[in-house]
């Protein structure tokens, strides 16, 4: 009787164990949405063109265009296995394009989300992305080549309270613009934190706080730095420093 009981017990344990192993790993549908704020106020294309924002320097400004590039979008699980979900994404806020990446499927688990603002030095090779070429996203060779990271443009009220224009473009930082330029990579590796993916579907929101481009840590005076910034090595380095706190992660 004891032998039979032990046998039955063993059988039950075996079945229980088998049930656990047979449990399929649940996949979750993941999407990434990019949203934008200025001083905590949501910004969409509907808010463009109006002089309604005040930057950290105290300058009133508007947005007329905001396009930027995110690359190397990846999830890394706790075992260190990295899943690259998109090589790059061009986001155009004014045109409402590129603001959602969907169709991502990941097994349940905890992941760290990483991406890069702009291209890395090696990925930032001139002319190799046909869709970005057609979008005129290129940077001339004399300015280091490759592609833009961001084009933010608009108007501002200058020191005389007159409307003026700005083109805040971020690219590689180039010393000695021209045929013998020396290029540095000011793209920003974004470690956006951990995400627990357990539901059937999850939308991850990446927020760009536009105001940060103008104030943290470098207060930006549009009266002095409003155009011709692509070949301005110092300006590009300042932009890179300000870009460190621009992006953050939210989950719904």
């Amino acid at each position: 009787m004891l032998n039979k009981s032990l046998f039955l017990l063993l059988l039950v344990v075996c079945f229980a164990a088998c049930e656990t192993n047979d449990d399929p790993i649940k996949n979750t549908s993941v999407s990434i949405d990019f949203s934008h704020r200025f001083n905590q106020q949501a910004v969409t294309s509907n808010n463009f063109n109006a002089l309604q924002y005040t930057n950290g320097f105290g300058t009133t400004l508007s947005l007329t265009r905001l396009r930027y590039l995110i690359s190397e979008i990846s999830f890394t699980n706790q075992q260190g296995i990295k899943t690259l979900v998109k090589d790059y994404q061009l986001i155009d806020v004014g045109e409402n394009t590129g603001m959602l990446i969907d169709g991502i499927t990941l097994p349940e688990g905890t992941y760290s989300l990483n991406m890069r603002f702009g291209f890395s030095q090696t990925a930032n090779t001139s002319s190799i992305y046909p869709d970005l070429n057609a979008a005129s996203w290129n940077v001339p060779q004399m300015l280091g080549g490759g592609y833009h990271y961001m084009q933010m443009e608009g108007r501002f009220l200058d020191l005389n309270n007159q409307e003026s224009i700005y083109a805040y473009h971020t690219i590689s930082a180039v010393q000695n613009p021209g045929p013998d330029n020396i290029r540095e990579d000011p793209s920003i590796a974004l470690t956006l934190g951990e995400i627990n993916i357990t539901q059937d579907a999850i939308q991850i929101n990446i927020t760009m706080d536009i105001d940060q481009w103008f104030e943290n840590p470098n207060l930006w005076d549009l009266n002095l730095l409003n155009g011709m910034l692509m070949g301005n090595y110092t300006a590009q380095k300042l932009m890179q420093e300000n870009g460190q706190t621009v992006f953050s992660l939210q989950t719904n």
Partner: peptide, 14 residues
């Protein structure tokens, strides 16, 4: 292509 001279490339390709 020179941002300080023609600066034509933003609108007119390259």
């Amino acid at each position: 292509l020179d941002e300080n001279r023609g600066d034509c490339f933003h609108c007119h390709g390259s």
